[in-house]
Computed example of a mutant assay.
Amino acid sequence: MASRAVRRWLPNQHGAWAMLVVPFLAGMFLGGPTAWHALLLLAWLLGYLASYHAQQWLRLRRHSRNPRAARRHALPARVFALALLPPAAALVLHAPWLLLAGACAVPFLGVNYVYAWRNRERALANGIAAVLPACGMLPVALLMGGGDLGDAWRPTLACLLYFAGTVLYVKTMIRERGSAPYRWASTLWHLAAPAAAYALHLPGATVVFFGVCFLRAVWLPTRGAVRAPVIGAVEVVLSLALLGTLVAA
């Protein structure tokens, strides 16, 4: 019973959690951890949860024939939104520039709501729209720790290269398995990633990391059907490897 309640309140999306946490932690460690990071992470995760349930409510209210399907997301959306208010207010009072950072995320969030309203959440553009603000948390967390914004753009681009590539790769493993255009797009992206990392003067370990990502993007789709938990576990490991690479470098 308890596990069912947890599943209703917390989305079971391994890739989404990694995308939310890894850029944030990279920015925190690069800028220097502070007590404010704990509050910022709490607000970031609460905002995601509130938005997730609001989008599910919008999608199901329009497309589901079962009125209870949408209603079960209404309470979590309200609870998480209300829980977000105190930490968000404290953070804005401490660092008013966070309002500008939040405003930058609004257009991408709007794209997510439009795709939810259309019941096309799995669209490629919607996935990319979610990746961009998630990776944008790296410079936000770095600045919160007192780091210099000039130090943020390279690791932020590394996160963008990885997580945008993951959107393509996961398509080739699940919903677009067997699709030649998606396979080619994923292969070319992952082939370009190590070259881009080298051209951007990212550390050699990062170039090697993207080489490993290229091998998994080319090899795993040829192994036939792979269970979603296995795909998610591989991405969690790679996400942690990216975090370690960026922080160590």
Rank of each mutant, 00 (worst) to 15 (best):
R177Y: 08
L200I: 04
G47T: 00
G32R: 00
A141C: 02
L138E: 02
C159D: 07
A88R: 09
P33C: 08
R223N: 12
V230P: 13
A43K: 05
R223C: 13
H37V: 14
E235P: 06
Y162W: 04
W184N: 01
V234H: 08
V21Q: 15
L60K: 09
A164P: 15
A101T: 06
A103I: 09
R183M: 02
L161Q: 12
G102V: 06
L82T: 03
A35M: 04
L30E: 06
L215R: 00
C135V: 08
E176S: 11
A158V: 10
A69F: 07
Y113G: 12
T222K: 11
R59L: 05
A134Y: 09
G31T: 06
A134I: 08
G15F: 08
R7F: 00
A125T: 11
G150F: 05
L20R: 04
M19L: 08
A125P: 14
L99D: 09
V236S: 12
V21H: 14
L42D: 02
G31P: 07
L99T: 07
A54H: 05
A90V: 03
A228R: 10
V218C: 03
L157Y: 11
F80I: 00
G232L: 11
P96L: 07
V21S: 15
V208K: 07
P23K: 13
R175F: 02
V237F: 13
W117H: 12
P67S: 07
T187H: 06
P133I: 12
H94P: 09
A43C: 09
N126W: 11
P139H: 10
V170M: 14
F80Y: 07
L191V: 03
V226M: 08
R177A: 14
H73Q: 04
